[in-house]
Structures are given as C-alpha cells and as structure tokens.
Design a protein around this nucleic acid. Structure first.
Length: 605
RNA sequence: GCGGGUGUAGCUCAGUUGGUUAGAGCGCUUCCCUGUCACGGAAGAGGCCGAGGGUUCAAGUCCCUUCACUCGCGCCA
C-alpha cells in the first residue's frame, strides 16, 4: 500500500465498498458522539467521512486530534445505510471505517487564527498573514484553481492559433510606460540600476523585428504604484501578445475568439451562468465613448446613453440662466434619458440630486415627460418647442425623465458618466450576469499635460499615429488619432494595445511634437531604434490583464481573491514579511548608502 | 500625500442616553452522548475594549492625538 494514499478524498463511491483504502488530508470537521466519532477528511479534491467507534483501541488517540491536523487514515470503505447517505457530498454514499491512522503533521496546538471549515468573512490582515490557511478554504481555493485553468486555457488557445510562448528578461531597463519603476541596484556597475519591466513592451516588439511573427507570454509586470480593488500593489500578470504584418482588425480578430472562448468556457464557474457577448465585439471610437458614456471604459450592461443637448439651452426661448451663463463661457449641456421613471416618487429624484451635490455639483437638474408636458423644477424655463427638440435629441418619450449636467466639456463629460452609472444603479437596470466586451478605438495620440500645459503622449508613445508622418506634419497634434485601442469589459479596462510605430522617421517626428529633444529616441530606446533602422516589419498587439479576467469569472470585487499570495494595500507581503531591511554587507555589495527621512530612520533600524 | 469606513475574547461580531461584574456564536479545555454530516447537551478557561492623552463622580461609549487595516482620490500612457 502506498505510504500516504490509495485514493483522494473525492474518489470513493459505492462501487469501492469492501475495499481497504488509505486516504490522507486535513481534519476538516469532527462530530463526536462519545462512543462514535465522525471525522470529515479534506484534501484538494474533496471530503470523505471517516468513522470510528470505541471498539477500536485507537479511538482515544484519534478523538484527541484537533482540526487541521494532517493524518492518513486506513480503513474499509463501507456503504452507508439509505437513511444516512449524504446527498450534498459526492462521496456521501460511503464512509471509511477507520482501522489505523498516522499523524503526518506536527500536532496542531495553537489556536487557529482563522477557521478553515467556515465561509465566514475574515479581516484582510489575518487572511494575508495566514494566507496558507485562507487558501485551504473553499472559495479562495477554488478561485486559485480557476486561475490555473484560465491560464492554461489561454495558453492552449494562443498556441492553437500558432503563437509561440516566450520569456523575456525580468532584470531590464526602464521602459516607456509612464508608471514608477521598481529598481534593482547593480553590483557589477556601481551607481547603475536595472528596472523590473512594467511590461515586456520593447522585448515583444524586438521579437517581431527578430522575425518571430506571433508572440505571446503570460507576463509578470511590475509597476510601483498604489493599489486599488481592481489593481494589485506592485505586480500583476498579463496575457501579452504581438504579431507582425497585421492591422488593428487582425489583432481584434485574433483576440476575440480567445477572450470570448475563455469567458464562455468558465462562464458558469459561480454556479450562475453569465451571458457573454459574442464576437465581433462592438467598436466604439474614443470620442463617441466620452460623449455617450462619459469615459473611455463604458459599462455596456448599463443601457442609458448620454446625449449633447447644448443646442437646446442655447435657444433664445429657453431662459434657464444657470446653464446659459456656463454656455457663454464655452460650456456644454449633457443629457441622460431615464426611461419610464415618471411614476417614481419624488424621493427618487431628490436622492439623485443629493448624490450630485455630494459629488461637488450644484445639483442634477431634470425634466420628466408625462404626456406632452414636461414637469419638474426646471421645466418652466423650457418652453414647449424647446422641449420637443430635447425629446428629439434624447429620444425621450412620455413617462421618461431627462437629467442634465452642465459644465465645461472636460468636467461635464465625466460627471455625466458618473451620473449615468448612478441613475442606472438607482433604477436597478444593470444586468449583473452579463459580460459585455467592447473595443475602444481611435484614442488621441497626444493630449495637453495639465501640469505643464504642453503637448504630451496620451498613450503609448510607440503607437502609430493615424495618417502617419503626413498627419504629424500637417495636423493639429491634439486632433491626431493613434492606432491605439483598449478592450473594455463591464466598465473595467481589460486590455490595451496598439499598432506600433515601426518607422524611425515617424517616431522621431512623434517625439519631436511631444517636446523631446532631437536624439532622445536614440538615447532612451537605443536597442529599439537600431532595430527600426535594420528592417522592422509593421506589427502590433495588446495585453490582457489576467488577474482582472479571473476576478470577473470568479465574480469577485477584489483581485486579491484570485491571487495566491497578494500584497496588502501598502504593498507589504504580510506572510513573507516584505519589504524588509537587509544586512549592511548586502547594501555594501550594491554600493548603496541609506539617506532616509528622519521619521523612518528608527523604523528601518 | 489626502478623504471615508473599521478597530471589543484566537476568529466573526453585539454592546442602548456615559452608569453595577463587558456579552453571543465558532474555536479551545473537561464531562455526557453509537448514525451524525454546521450533530446535540452540561460546565469552564479566555479581554490593556488598537495605543496615548483629555472631559467627567463615572468612559468600550464623548473630545483630541496617533497607529493599524480597508475603500476611494492623487498616481497607474
């Protein structure tokens, strides 16, 4: 007999009755009847009930074992009587009648800081400090299995399309992404540093210039920026993809079946099937998204749409001066039509108005259409003819309300976006069991940097500008679009990508417009720049956030729920105690001397 | 760096307007219990109420400071 087990804890069925088996695992739960003791033994695969009574001389020793001890149990598989079968358990037809057992772990003597056999919510700090216990618990354990399955599915789907899986360096140089780098000091080169890759961006482009055609990688990425619920501290994984001789549509056609396929494959993970939007995913130009949804990552589960109704409030017969004064300064009015809400109580509208005030707005004006007539606090400023124009622009009919946001465009658009979300939430019209994908396309190549007031890259500086060199030389930089796109799912950015700029002349001009001195491209991205000169194929790609994909499929609100060993919000690993101070000789090796803020000198000790 | 929330037993939480000895469930210890499956029952141990300061006859409760965790903002093209 095997030293540890002949079967797993999810394997034994009625057909095994009479067999002598050995199973190993953790003591999940005990039910002690004095003369009769039931123990649920748990391993990765499931639970098996074991039973022992006082006839067995091992009874006293076995009875003393505490929860979460690791034991192997040898015994006979016994069919349960019909009335004692447990239908909720796959192994519920049988139990193992214990003959002998071995304690395989050191005996558990301390109190468990968190209980494995409950689904009670625990504090983050305890969960992270004792992550190995939390990972034993059902929900987190299954989430991590899902993550493994999702990654192998992605890998299989990419390989089936003829992509090659690469590894790229972890110790590298600073890359063109805009985030803070993690730095690693060089021992051999005093005063110099490696940077951990924010993404393998340059390497994957170099692989295209090296003639490999179809690249992918399950790539670790490192960015020294603060965490959010959908963004872990420090590091995350991307499905990183690049292809040669492709257009934007080729990238979409490559990725849509992969992403749709994976989401469809695991759409039933939570036990409730999610409906997945089929390829081709809807494509929305950036400008349209900003107008209709108020951001560049629309939640398309929300059916509400924003329209521009500035023209209505500019009419001479409309006398709503609160808006007119803003319009005179160049502002806009954005409207959100909320269908069939005229029967809602006044409190529905007041609540939204209070919310808007809480967001720093003056309020959220609205008109409710009942029959032909518009009602509400500001309806009296809008005569019938103007109301007709309003209905025409927004598509509002009888029973609908239209909410207004008025401000300068750069404030009105995002606030209308927030209001769109808030109104839909209050109306409870967002279908929580849908995955709706979209591609946001035609991002602007440049934007005004608010701090400096100068023209800056708005996305990846390596993206190809639409219209190429001609556009760069002849158009207003702020009007130039880039072959740059995001894949958005339910209001969260899932991927970003672009068709790259592979022509040195266009790249130099692009950096010139963003105010970089001549030669900057060559100094900063020398390897890439050289490659561009020696035969670079047109290429492009994208990168999908794996943690976020799994988070969606597991229906979790926080990426930590799908990562085995995440850091906390302060980018600390409570289990491994990182970051930590190091021995002075290690610092000396890498030529580092501390110069700490006074308050932290004691802490660094 | 800034704002919101939370902090009471090993864990999850309750604790009234400031008022006697700070409670419950799980876990832990001892005992009873031979068909449970979140087994049941009896008893028990376990508390610097995050820390420090203040107001008060009296503070878990009110005020100030501070720390930790968390959510968000800044940041992340």
């Amino acid at each position: 007999m095997h030293a540890y087990r002949t079967h797993t804890c999810n394997q034994l069925r009625a057909e095994h009755k009479g067999q002598t088996v050995k199973i190993s695992g953790w003591i999940h739960r005990k039910r002690d009847h004095g003369g009769l003791l039931f123990v649920d033994l748990r391993d990765h695969y499931g639970l098996t009930q074991c039973v022992i009574n006082t006839d067995n001389p091992m009874f006293p020793a076995f009875e003393k074992l505490r929860l979460e001890n690791v034991v192997s149990i040898t015994g006979e598989v016994v069919a349960r009587t019909p009335e004692t079968v447990n239908k909720h358990l796959p192994t519920g037809e049988i139990e193992v009648k214990l003959k002998t057992f071995d304690l395989l772990s050191a005996p558990v003597t301390d109190m468990l800081p968190l209980q494995v056999n409950t689904d009670e919510p625990y504090g983050e700090e305890v969960r992270l400090r004792y992550r190995f216990l939390d990972l034993r618990r059902d929900v987190l354990h299954r989430n991590i299995v899902l993550r493994c399955d999702v990654i192998s599915s992605l890998r299989r789907r990419m390989i089936e399309q003829g992509f090659l899986e690469f590894q790229t360096p972890i110790l590298t140089a600073s890359s063109p992404e805009g985030a803070r780098d993690f730095l690693v000091p060089s021992r051999l080169h005093p005063g110099k540093f490696y940077a951990l890759p924010q993404a393998p961006q340059q390497f994957k482009q170099l692989l295209m210039m090296s003639g490999f055609d179809k690249y992918f990688q399950i790539a670790p990425c490192f960015r020294d920026e603060d965490a959010r619920a959908d963004r872990t501290a420090g590091e995350f994984y991307q499905l990183d993809v690049e292809r040669s001789f492709v257009t934007q549509d080729d990238i979409f056609a490559t990725m849509e079946p992969v992403i749709y396929g994976v989401f469809e494959e695991f759409s039933n993970f939570t036990g409730k099937k999610f409906e997945v939007s089929k390829p081709p995913f809807v494509r929305i130009p950036y400008d349209e998204s900003m107008l209709k949804y108020g951001n560049d990552k629309p939640d398309l589960r929300n059916p509400l749409v924003i329209t521009d109704v500035t023209s209505v409030f500019k009419r001479d017969d409309v006398t709503f001066n609160a808006f007119k004064s803003v319009l005179e300064k160049g502002g806009v009015v954005r409207a959100i039509r909320a269908p069939k809400v005229s029967d809602r109580p006044r409190s529905f509208f007041d609540k939204l108005n209070d919310w808007a005030k809480g967001e720093g707005a003056v309020g959220l004006g609205y008109v409710v259409f009942e029959g032909a007539e518009g009602k509400g606090p500001i309806a009296k400023f809008i005569p019938a003819a103007a109301q007709e124009e309003l209905k025409k622009l927004t598509g509002a009919g009888s029973g609908d309300a239209v909410f207004f946001v008025c401000d300068m465009v750069e404030k009105a658009a995002p606030f209308a976006g927030k209001a769109r979300t808030k109104i839909a939430e209050e109306m409870d019209i967002i279908d929580k069991h849908k995955f709706i994908f979209s591609w946001i396309v035609d991002f602007p190549m440049y934007e005004i940097n608010e701090k400096t007031g100068k023209v800056d890259f708005s996305h990846n500086p390596f993206s190809m500008p639409a219209g190429g060199l001609h556009a760069l030389n002849t158009q207003d930089p702020l009007k130039i679009k880039a072959y740059q796109y995001d894949c958005v799912l339910n209001g969260i950015e899932l991927a970003s990508g672009g068709i790259r700029n592979h022509v040195p002349e266009i790249m130099e001009r692009a950096f010139d417009i963003a105010g970089y001195p001549k030669g900057e491209v060559e100094t900063k991205f020398g390897g890439m720049y050289n490659a561009f000169k020696f035969g670079a194929p047109p290429h492009g790609g994208c990168a999908f956030g794996i943690d976020r994909m799994v988070m969606f499929l597991a229906d979790q609100k926080n990426v930590r729920e799908v990562i085995a060993f995440p850091m906390n919000q302060q980018a600390e690993d409570l289990l491994m105690n990182a970051p930590t101070t190091v021995e002075p000789n290690l610092l000396k090796d890498v030529h580092i001397k501390m110069d700490l803020p006074k308050a932290q000198i004691k802490a660094a000790g």
